[in-house]
Simulated assay, not measured.
Amino acid sequence: MALGLVCSAAFAAEVRLKDVSHVEARGVDVRVFRADASEPLFGSVAKTGDGVVFTAALPLVAGESYRVEIKSADGSWSERRLKFSLPAAAAPTVGISPVPTQLPANALKLYLQFSQPMEQGVFLERISLHQQDGSVVQGAFRETELWSPDGRRLTLWLHPGRQKTGVNLNSDEGPVLQEKQKYSLRIAPSWRSAQGVELGKEAVFALTAGAVDHATPNPGRWQIRVPQAGTRDPLKVTFDEPLDPAMLASALKVRCAEADVAGTVALALDARTWYFIPAEPWVAGKGAIIVDPLLEDLAGNNLLGPFEVDRDVPVNPVEVRPLSFEIGK
């Protein structure tokens, strides 16, 4: 049995297993665990010739150890361990967040995630938004170029002057996205990494515009799944809508016994699920998730109020309370 680990464009990873033709692609005969966690990672299993591919729902972490369990033909389980390491520098790849990319028609931003630091100052020459008939949406993006410190993530702003109703550009040119319409975001193959290597082929991402969203995120509709004491299984929060994936990396903090809990955060690719993995095993007792009130949804509405505000209507103050949970023994 051979194992391989492949980094995809969206930084989710595929665990490839060869010479295991007896394994069925049911998702129950192959399990992948983080280190010694008791619960397997979320993902899907598919047959590929004489083997199978496990595609993780969450990004794997470089340097972290993973445990792969395969059910043998006789019903017993065998185990292999591996570590995820970044591939050698080659042509860069690019993914989009969130995935799948269904946006409210008044969405404000997307994120492009590259496998390598990219050349900067050229994004308006390298990116275009197209309608379903292939025509280009002119003036779709704000000219602000905002990169993450490592040069790999680009915040792509849909022009707020067109996306916000009642302002001049919106009235004169109309919004960037029209409800119920489909679009494609195209990334030019000539975009180079900081090392001068081109993407080499055009990347195309399908976008769909849904209904406009003027409602503030509501933590009362979020669902929390609580782990057991003594484990390092993740604390899971599921949102009722996609939230800003870049903000989610730091907008929620976990507190137990009146002290912040150290750990790492992971996000599902659709930006609807947040995971917190503690540095040390959970201790039984009450805890809380502290939410930054400035956390936004994809349309820029935060917990304190909507992005678009009628100045003639008084805004009532909003109290954002911690989300309580309890770790059982």
Rank of each mutant, 00 (worst) to 15 (best):
V315W: 06
S324A: 13
K71G: 03
Q113I: 07
Q132M: 09
D50T: 12
G328M: 07
F54Q: 05
V94L: 06
A246I: 06
V167A: 01
I224K: 00
V226Y: 10
R34C: 04
Q178M: 05
E69S: 05
R255V: 08
D19H: 10
E308W: 10
A257Q: 08
L252R: 13
G75T: 15
G4I: 11
A91G: 04
I70W: 00
P160I: 05
A37C: 02
A279T: 02
V320P: 06
K236Y: 03
N302K: 09
E69I: 00
L86M: 07
V265A: 11
F307A: 00
E179A: 14
R221L: 07
P87W: 13
A266N: 06
D29H: 06
T273E: 14
A209K: 09
L295S: 07
C256T: 04
L60M: 09
P234T: 07
R255L: 09
L199G: 00
S135A: 13
T165H: 00
L154I: 11
W222N: 01
A46V: 07
I277F: 14
H214D: 09
P306V: 05
E280S: 08
V15G: 05
P149A: 06
G287F: 08
A288I: 01
P175W: 12
G210V: 00
V176F: 13
S65E: 13
S8I: 08
H214E: 14
P281G: 11
P245R: 11
I327T: 03
F42G: 15
K83R: 04
R16G: 04
P245I: 14
A62P: 00
A203N: 10
A284M: 07
T216M: 15
Q163R: 09
R311M: 00
A288Y: 08
E173G: 00
C7N: 12
E319C: 06
V61S: 07
S184G: 08
G75H: 15
S184A: 14
D312G: 01
T144N: 04
K164W: 07
I96T: 03
L269P: 02
V137A: 10
P278H: 12
P306L: 08
S44I: 03
G63R: 12
L124T: 02
I277Y: 13
E241C: 08
T93D: 12
F114C: 09
S135E: 11
N302H: 15
E280T: 06
A206N: 13
I277A: 08
